[in-house]
């Protein structure tokens, strides 16, 4: 039989009403437990609601990841805008953030009440240790996607030393190392051969 991974190209659903859009993002925002919200967004937007095709989703994800801001929030803004313009962007981001933000606000009051209890302290210390493991995995996965050559690893190392050991502000590291890294990967004329000329050969370097 044919490969099960092949997704049949179902026609897209018509853009949702603003209320349906808010509700959809709210449900995704409330059910995406344990991080990896992007996977939940893809399942929801592409597979379940069929509001976006996979190609558009991947394109929006590339934008989200290269801009400041949280990935899931950026995705909600971009997808909401594609579906219903700026009100869609606003309600998409609101729906995505509201469940988690409400819970964490409630958590602050709960910790304020019971935070000195030694049992909850033992619990919180232990989940902080678990979170270190999770964050390291996120870093490794991001690295697998973003690092291609030795120079990239050098930029990673410089950033780590500056921020974690020399306590340089994240802003200066981002702007300083970022500028050098962007310049390192600057557009080179030879990298863009004339597409109309199939005989064009890159000079061996």
């Amino acid at each position: 039989m044919s490969k099960p991974v092949a997704v049949p190209a179902l026609p897209l659903a018509p853009p949702p009403s603003l209320w349906r859009l808010f509700l959809g993002f709210f449900i995704m925002g409330a059910t995406s437990l344990g991080g990896g919200v992007i996977a939940y967004l893809r399942t929801g937007l592409v597979t379940h609601y069929r509001w976006l095709d996979d190609e558009t989703f991947v394109e929006l994800m590339a934008i989200s990841q290269s801009l400041p801001g949280l990935n899931a929030t950026n995705m909600s803004i971009l997808a909401g805008d594609r579906l219903r313009g700026w009100p869609g962007a606003l309600l998409g981001a609101l729906g995505m953030c509201l469940p988690g933000a409400s819970l964490m606000t409630a958590a602050a009051f709960a910790v304020g009440v019971g935070g000195d209890d030694p049992l909850s302290k033992a619990f919180l210390h232990a989940i902080a240790a678990g979170a270190v493991g999770l964050v390291t995995v996120v870093g490794v996965q991001l690295g697998a996607k973003m690092l291609y050559e030795i120079a990239d690893y050098v930029f990673v190392a410089i950033t780590i030393v500056l921020v974690a050991f020399l306590h340089v502000s994240v802003l200066y590291a981002l702007v300083g190392v970022g500028a050098v890294a962007i310049w390192w990967h600057r557009p080179r004329k030879t990298g863009l051969p004339d597409a109309k000329d199939p005989e064009h050969k890159e000079p061996a370097s």
Partner: peptide, 27 residues
């Protein structure tokens, strides 16, 4: 493309530095 390729390694470095700062307190 240069911005995307250049900011990638810095982002990885910043996430790793964040993990180190968190680890110093938590472990």
């Amino acid at each position: 493309a240069s911005v995307q390729r250049g900011l990638g390694p810095v982002a990885v470095g910043l996430v790793a530095a964040g993990a180190i700062v968190l680890a110093r307190g938590a472990l």
